[in-house]
Design a protein around this nucleic acid. Sequence first.
DNA 1: TAGTGGTCTAGACCACCCG
DNA 2: GGGTGGTCTAGACCACTAA
Lengths: 254, 254
Amino acid sequence: MRKHNIKMKVVNLEFQRYSIRMTTTSLNTWQLVQDEVLHRIQTGVWSPGTLLPTEKELAQEFECSRATVSRALNNLSGEGLLDRRRKGGTRVNLNPVRRATLAIPVMREEIEGKGSVYRAMVLEREQRNPTPAVRAFLSVEADCPMVHLRSLHMADNQPYAFEDRWVNLQVVPKFAEADLTEISANEWLVQNSGFSGGDVAFYSVNAGSQEAENLGCREGEALFVLERITRVNNKPITFVRLFYRPGHRISTSL
Amino acid sequence: MRKHNIKMKVVNLEFQRYSIRMTTTSLNTWQLVQDEVLHRIQTGVWSPGTLLPTEKELAQEFECSRATVSRALNNLSGEGLLDRRRKGGTRVNLNPVRRATLAIPVMREEIEGKGSVYRAMVLEREQRNPTPAVRAFLSVEADCPMVHLRSLHMADNQPYAFEDRWVNLQVVPKFAEADLTEISANEWLVQNSGFSGGDVAFYSVNAGSQEAENLGCREGEALFVLERITRVNNKPITFVRLFYRPGHRISTSL
DNA sequence: TAGTGGTCTAGACCACCCG
DNA sequence: GGGTGGTCTAGACCACTAA
């Protein structure tokens, strides 16, 4: 996309948003194309359901290569704004399913990132077989050796999150001797075992007596819960529930 | 990346995972490269902190173009596994910050996607100025004309989520006459106004009397809340809180 | 079956930034 | 300053699928 000597329509649109462009310093062609397409969608030039010109046509209009147009459109498609299919062309999604990307950091970084001092303490640690509920969740055998941990994550010496974790010793037997005074179970596992996938869920529960006691809140208070199953090679390696203190929220931008 | 006539090491690794490859039918070069790099990370060939070979070297090893290697590595970087910087090279992240991508669909699609019948009812609709709390959230003036809506989303005639929404009539004046019997407020806004960005947050609250009554649950039960501010052109257009019925969870895979 | 987007290449130039 | 990744191109072939 040449910055000068360009079609009238594009010049106008670029000019309208020049103040924005000046600040964001987006000089890349694919970003300019993406912004321009986004702008046309937002202003209704291409309303929901509209069939966009082909990549080749857009490449001609913007005077850039098809690959560059493709990158821009694929980005918008990844954000849920466009629906692209071979032969069918590219359309503006009727109901743009926005996808929110949440970062799930290590607890230490989450807390230190807020400027607080991180500290963790292991409250309870036992080696045992899984409870029936845990067994069902992880689909492991009844006699599978596991470590059950309860820990507390502190921010500035205030309870921040209560952790209830099961670790599968069949997959990571060395965890039985892991020293968790320096690093947390999560950090140990990240550094000492692979990682291939898992599931995350968020939900909300009323605090039980155990959570209330450890988090220093009333029983029954609504707690935000992050639940995660981590697998390596399709074998469940750990199952963890993180009960955040009341008022915790996770947020992101669209 | 040629499938045959390839270095011994790669052949071996491909062979080890052949059963997986057979099922996933990933024939693209960039996917093969990505899988291979992922595999080397997971098996510790490239442990956390390790500096990877340059794109050019990897392109030579995999016998493909640098652009293809670049795509594979950039994908992994986007997933938080790699840290890439010019001149600095590509490293395996020490603490892989996993990013979970959550889809935030329109309520109708969320419910119909579960095979249930969707129905929505507007419980209350009034035109008024914002409360101080809403004003602070949206940073609008005190005399900004708004519509305050309370609605209930039903799945198979059971309460599914309770919605508390404010719409900024300064930005979308036509909303004042919107007919919300056929489509929901969200759908109306998606189709009748642009969209440029917003913030989403998830948290958890105890059900108040209003939520309990409408969702048919006890007061004090822990509810999962999705809160969203949507903007067009940096002007707040709507602010919505969705209180899901007890037990609701959102989940995703890593 | 024809037309669209998906992928890949070889090469080029450039911006960034570590040493 | 030099080496890395970031971007871009022109062209090619291919996979999918709507008409």
